[in-house]
Design a protein around this nucleic acid. Structure first.
Lengths: 214, 214, 214, 214
DNA sequence: CATGAATGAGTATTCATTCAT
DNA sequence: TATGAATGAATACTCATTCAT
């Protein structure tokens, strides 16, 4: 997570200006992800983010207008990544059984990323407190819900079943569950027990533990 | 939420020393609950907590050893309140149908408390970051889960049904869901739509929306 | 150094009002001596002084107008004690040889009091910083010097010798040496090596290590 | 002692980054020396030190890790300066008579620095109270004593005389005397009367006021 | 006289941000 | 673009002092 300064420099020389800038941004975003997840918005100082990416404060401010700005960008990046993953599943024409296990994998891999859950909670907490942030968050959240609802609908069509509630409600519940469980597991027992979340999600969808694999 | 200083003084004069001290503690705890919920641990300054309760910083520190101390006490108070509510339900000998609606009410009233969900998330976030805090949190969480698991077991016995998973797992899921939905709703659309959480919980328990009332 | 509250109370009941007050004052002064010596003026809080004497802050302020006041009183008490000790020696009609060893003992016993040296330095430091304090200090210091100078004069008369310098200068030097060595020894190696100070003083007086005993 | 902000800025612009930083450090150290000497460790606030050097609190903390750090650095600087001065005398091959007057001058010039004595006392007081500080202090003190003892030995060799006690003991006494007299004079009558200290030192060395110049 | 709750000014320290290099 | 020195507002916490009981 921490790159030696000379390594950073050596790499940088092989890149064009444009690439170099992108590189810097990317590295800073990576550092920020980890530090915000582990220490929260307040706990991650600009200095630390920059330093742990191998740069100085100055580089940070050359690339991001403010601490809030990088946090917003992070929100955007992470939410979009989530949404894209779901959208891809939606686009592919896979059989139902496979779809369920794909969802399962997508969810579990996402959460196996130690940081994601905490970051997600942190995003929501900030949204509760900051109006600007809330707007951006709400918009992305809506898209996220819509996409997941689409996927749920498709799944139930393929299974030739009726979803137990409104797909959008189910999507909301699944997302809440994901964040809630991450938070709980990290705070109580360390990383989430694998399979636990998937099982819970299938339950919410009314697809018993076994049913999904039929 | 904010008491005028003269009001505070007027009240104080009618109380004995001991009562007065208790009053101060209580007021500070109330202010702290709200401010921690709205602004997070970092966002709520000791100064603000004291002032919004109608006291000075000094009063805060003559009642609590530190900011961390009041936060821990808050955690304790809130968790115990939750646990006690469940324990009472567990002790009462009510028919199944009523139990379900009692659970429903308990959950929804709990969440209608605007602050609880956020505070709960904040507690967990702190537990992720601070070891001392994590210990206290884990202990209370375990009791909470146990109590809720007991209630779930009892419910299924009365319904003469088998729970869809381990009662303790179900309890964990319900708690995660509660926190997750509070967080989500507050961050996206303001307070949680009533009945939504109850519905979700019943779903997790495998008691379809209607089934619970049978 | 710390008296249990019930012990204090029990004792207090046997005393008249006047005695009780004196008792309180005395105890507070004792505590203050130790705490000022160990922690300096800033390091000793009123709370601590009161508590370690077995009282509350209130008792402190019933007996002393302020923290500065008790410090000034302490200065007075300690300086007078020193001066009185010297004055007594001066009054007694003892042979020279004995006088030297009396001085020796007085000095060393004074310094064996772990706290005295530090307190003395603390007094002087305060005098450098606070004008009011400086006045009181200067007056007492003058008396101290005069008394010691008288003693030195007497000593040399008895020895039928001439002092190596002005007796008052010698007195100043001896006092400086006493404070300086206490400070040095406490800061570097713990309590002062016994006899070291006496030897140094005799040297200053031009009475070689052996000469004094002649 | 206090630099106007515009003056500071004007100067700063003519310096390179590195020089500028050094300048800041130096100025802060100067201010700290004076303020610690006049107000003691507690009495000199970081704010005041920074402001009286013409900087903000932030500048202080970008140059020193903490208040303790600058105090330790000050101790180091001042002690080393003392030691170096003595070491130089030791290295030079001067005749005895000159050596005595050099010592005399070195001592008196050292003390004419109004702040040194108080600072020295303050260092020792801190060493009595803080273990970390005590360690650093003890080490420097030992070197100081050794160097001065070397000088004393050399002096007596040149004079073809025997020192009245162990050179190291004499060194300790001289140092204690220096601190003690500074303290006393500052607290009672303002700066030390010139020549008084030198005379006292010569006396301790058994070189009567006149003898040294023989 | 003694208690201890409450006050509020003061302290060290952190950190987002700016800007000359 | 990147650096890092400097700023200054904000924060947790301490402590001498007051005053109602």
């Amino acid at each position: 997570m921490r790159y030696a300064k000379n390594v950073v420099k050596a790499i940088r020389q092989r890149l064009t200006r444009r690439e170099s800038r992108l590189e810097t941004r990317t590295r800073l975003l990576e550092s920020a992800t980890q530090l915000f997840a582990r220490g929260g918005y307040e706990g991650a100082s600009v200095d630390l983010i920059a330093e742990s990416a191998g740069y100085s404060k100055g580089a940070f401010y050359s690339n991001f207008k403010s601490k809030e700005a990088i946090f917003l960008e992070l929100l955007d990046v992470h939410k979009r990544r989530e949404i894209d993953a779901l959208a891809q599943l939606l686009a592919q024409d896979v059989p139902a059984s496979e779809l369920v296990s794909l969802i399962r994998n997508s969810e579990s891999s996402r959460v196996s990323d130690f940081d994601f859950g905490l970051l997600s909670a942190e995003f929501q907490l900030q949204a509760c407190r900051d109006k600007t942030f809330a707007k951006t968050y709400a918009k992305l959240h809506r898209t996220h819900v819509d996409t997941m609802a689409g996927l749920i609908t498709k799944l139930f069509v393929k299974l030739d079943r009726t979803p137990p509630s409104e797909p959008r409600d189910l999507a909301e519940i699944i997302m809440a569950l994901t964040t809630g469980l991450s938070l709980q597991r990290t705070s109580v027992q360390g990383p989430l027990r694998k399979g636990f979340l998937t099982a819970a999600i299938l339950q919410v969808l009314g697809l018993g533990p076994s049913e999904g694999d039929r």
